[in-house]
Design a protein around this nucleic acid. Structure first.
Lengths: 212, 212
DNA sequence: AGCTAAACGGACGGGGTGTTCCGATAGCGT
DNA sequence: ACGCTATCGGAACACCCCGTCCGTTTAGCT
């Protein structure tokens, strides 16, 4: 009868276990989004109404839980980049991409922190991030070719913008999103190729800080 | 003979105590600057080659040490604002003010964190910050009157910029300063009043997060 | 040099964290 | 209905943190 299970990849997880797993993930998602990654594992277990041991059986370490939680956010991120790339007007696509990525990061503090950091000894989003950055590079190339994006824009500028965006702390998620919108608009204005372009200071490589 | 001490306000601190106090402050300054405020008091005591109790005798709490350490940085901050205000060209003064404040924050992670936070139950820089912000408002008013600064700039935008600047994390202090320079230039470009000014999204109040 | 009070610092308590052990519980196939 | 076993969760471990107590050291005045 086990084969009667709807084509699910979950190899025979007992019903209570599956419920707990999903409740843990839901709780972790909202909590990380609201409070960032500095949430105690105990706290997540408490909110999910399970014991700490149960949490650790499903996710052997905190980094594992974090990566599991943010895999879908990473997908949303690449989807945003893809949509920007699909826009026939590359500059408009570039702008919308930045606006939406900034807002996504503003709405999820944990994802924002995870994105600009690197977890050692854990599957992180390095591969997906690099892939997305490659697409952004293509989008930027087109926007430059269209004459709208200043030619001295580099990819590290985007990393810088996202790091900066993650520094904006507010009380409510709505305020964070609003601040992020204004911030992105200000920066986009600065990235526009102007008739008389004052040169920017040199770009900086921004290697991701390692999270202990 | 105690009166022979050069006009010092230090009421009779024993020589070893004064040495320790100064060494603690020096260590705290550099450590906070490099690593931010999340440094253990023990660690500061260790680097200053004193016991934890000595550290706590000189500064009864961590917040006290932090405020003591960053008082001079706060003075540097207001000095920068004053210099900007003294510039005959208000727009140039405004730009230089932003650049220099951003660089100051980039060079001192601890000060940056302390500036955009509020310590409860501790003398924080609220008064000085408000005073400096008042001067910035005057500078911004002049820059707007000169037609160089976009009219919809608000003071909270500066807070936002400083918060964002504090989110830029790098490996070396030099890289942080360089990134900060580029970041500030990008933002200043966005703050410039353009012939055709695309309206910004609404501004957002950014109450300072409380540090526990 | 000797004495006294100021200053020192190792050890301690209370609370936090990520993670693990193991006896109790409860799903599920029979 | 029963029993096997996957799963649960409270208690515990090891390690951090901030801040304090108290016996020891030492500066500085006579």
């Amino acid at each position: 009868m086990t084969n009667r299970l709807p084509h699910s990849l979950r190899y025979s997880l007992r019903s209570d276990a599956r419920d707990n797993r999903e409740r843990i993930l839901a709780v972790a998602r909202t909590t990380f989004a609201e409070q960032g990654l500095d949430v105690a594992m105990r706290e997540i277990a408490r909110r999910a109404e399970v014991g700490p041991a149960t949490l650790y059986r499903h996710f052997p370490t905190k980094a594992a839980l974090v990566t599991e939680v943010f895999t879908e956010q990473m997908a949303a991120c690449t989807a945003i980049v893809d949509e920007g790339l699909a826009d026939p007007d590359p500059w408009r696509g570039f702008c919308r991409m930045i606006e939406r990525v900034c807002e996504l990061h503003a709405r999820d503090r944990g994802f924002s922190a995870a994105f600009v950091s690197a977890f050692p000894h854990a599957i992180d989003f390095a591969a997906e991030r690099e892939q997305a950055l490659g697409k952004v590079a293509e989008l930027a190339r087109r926007a430059k070719a269209g004459g709208k994006l200043r030619p001295d824009f580099v990819l590290d500028d985007l990393i810088m913008v996202l790091m900066a965006n993650s520094g904006i702390r507010t009380t409510s998620p709505a305020a964070a999103a609003a601040a992020s919108r204004r911030f992105a608009a200000l920066l986009i204005q600065g990235m526009r190729a102007e008739p008389a372009i004052p040169p920017l200071p040199p770009a900086v490589r921004l290697p991701l800080a390692v999270v202990t």
